[in-house]
Simulated scan of single mutants.
Amino acid sequence: MVVSYSGIAGRRGKNPTKIVIHNDGGSKNAKASFYKSWLENHNPELGFAHYYVAEDGTYQAEADGNSAWHCANSVGNRDYLGIEVCQSLGSESVFKANEQKAFKLAATLCKKYKLNPSVAIFPLHRELSSTDCPHRSFALHGKAIVAVKNYYVEQVKKYFGSTSSGSSSSAGSSLAKNTKPLKDGKVGDLVKVYDALYRDSTGAGRSTAKRGKQGRIKRIVANSKKYLVEDWGWAHPNDLQLIKRATGSTSVKLPAGFSKEEATFVNGDTQITTRTNKPSLKGTVGKALKPHEKVAYLGWKVSEGYTWIYTKDKRYIPVRLVGKAAWGTFK
């Protein structure tokens, strides 16, 4: 069922040209059933999207053929479909599941309106107006516009029926599916490059030059091409096969709410106070991170307006104010 907004923001008179995937900024209770009730008593001029995708299903608030006030941009409101990924302030697992539903919906809409999934088809809300939307996707999938857009396209293509990018070679597209993709890779693992490597972790600069070679994982980040192999390039788990697990390493469990990212933080010119029991300024003070000191970390989390890293020696270290430059560099 579509709510009574039908056409209130104008009738487009043509097929939509792009799709904006939003994050709703709602709590764990902001489900499709909530939005159905809330939107019917909500001033539409304050904003609404076409679809609301949540744990309990998908609610369509406006017909595809009509415009919607969803991105504070005249062209975007008129010509683009808006999909809200709901419960973006709730649990990460629920949000990611909702994202996948939204990607599947986006793939269906792309097919319906003959849109070829590409970064041009999926502008971010923050590109169209002043906002932090999609805030949760931004934090989870690269913290950069190009990284998030590449992730969106990659995920939509899974459901669209395309698994290769426009830059893939004919050899790459004809390669048999990797039946033993890397699972839960660790820094130091010896792996075989089954398919391609990329110049950066967002998926740019695809190359098959190292196909069949063996090398070790040097770094792991949160982007889709998450594994750095030697200094050759970045790989998706489907691009690699495990040869031998790293030995002599100790596994440290990430605290709740932390996103996995194995790398090194190099502090800047100012000493940073660390915490030993929780990512909070009220936590127990630990050994300070000295100026220019390096520290290996396993994951990150946003808490109290700061981005915190969790280190191998089990310290919580704030490394930046959210939305601001880091107090050091990441390697």
Rank of each mutant, 00 (worst) to 15 (best):
M1H: 12
V2N: 06
V3E: 02
Y5G: 01
S6F: 08
S6R: 14
K14M: 13
N15S: 10
I19N: 01
I21L: 12
H22Y: 03
D24S: 15
G25R: 07
G26W: 12
S27G: 09
S33W: 01
Y35E: 00
K36D: 02
E45T: 04
G47I: 05
F48Q: 00
A49I: 00
H50E: 01
Y51N: 01
G57K: 11
Q60R: 14
Q60K: 09
E62H: 02
N66M: 01
S67Q: 06
S67F: 08
H70G: 01
N73C: 09
S74F: 04
G76C: 03
I83F: 05
V85D: 05
C86F: 08
Q87M: 07
S88M: 03
L89C: 04
L89M: 13
S93K: 14
V94H: 06
F95A: 00
F95P: 08
A97T: 14
N98M: 07
N98S: 05
K104W: 05
A107K: 08
C110A: 04
K111E: 09
K112Y: 08
Y113T: 05
N116P: 00
V119C: 08
I121T: 14
I121H: 04
F122S: 02
P123R: 07
L124Q: 06
R126D: 04
L128Y: 06
L128D: 05
S129F: 11
S129M: 03
T131Y: 11
C133S: 10
P134V: 02
P134M: 03
S137D: 03
S137C: 03
A139P: 00
A139Y: 10
H141Y: 15
H141I: 00
G142R: 07
K143D: 08
A144V: 01
A144S: 15
Y151L: 00
V153A: 06
V156R: 03
V156M: 02
K158G: 02
Y159M: 08
G161P: 13
T163W: 11
T163I: 10
S164Q: 11
G166E: 15
S167D: 15
S167H: 13
G172V: 14
S173E: 10
S174K: 15
L182N: 03
K183L: 11
V187Q: 12
G188H: 11
G188M: 05
L190E: 15
V191T: 10
V191W: 13
L197Q: 12
D200E: 11
T208L: 13
T208Q: 11
T208A: 09
G212N: 15
G212P: 13
G215Y: 11
R216H: 14
S224H: 13
K225N: 15
K225I: 02
L228V: 06
V229M: 09
W232N: 09
A235E: 12
N238Y: 13
T247L: 10
T247W: 09
G248E: 11
K253W: 04
G257Q: 05
E262D: 12
T264M: 07
F265M: 03
V266T: 15
T270S: 07
T270L: 05
T273P: 01
R275W: 12
T276L: 11
N277A: 08
P279L: 10
P279T: 07
V285L: 06
V285Y: 09
A288Q: 15
A288Y: 13
L289I: 13
L289W: 06
E293H: 10
K294F: 10
V295W: 12
V295E: 09
W300C: 01
S303L: 01
Y306S: 02
T307W: 14
T311S: 07
I317R: 05
A325Q: 14
A325D: 15
K331A: 07
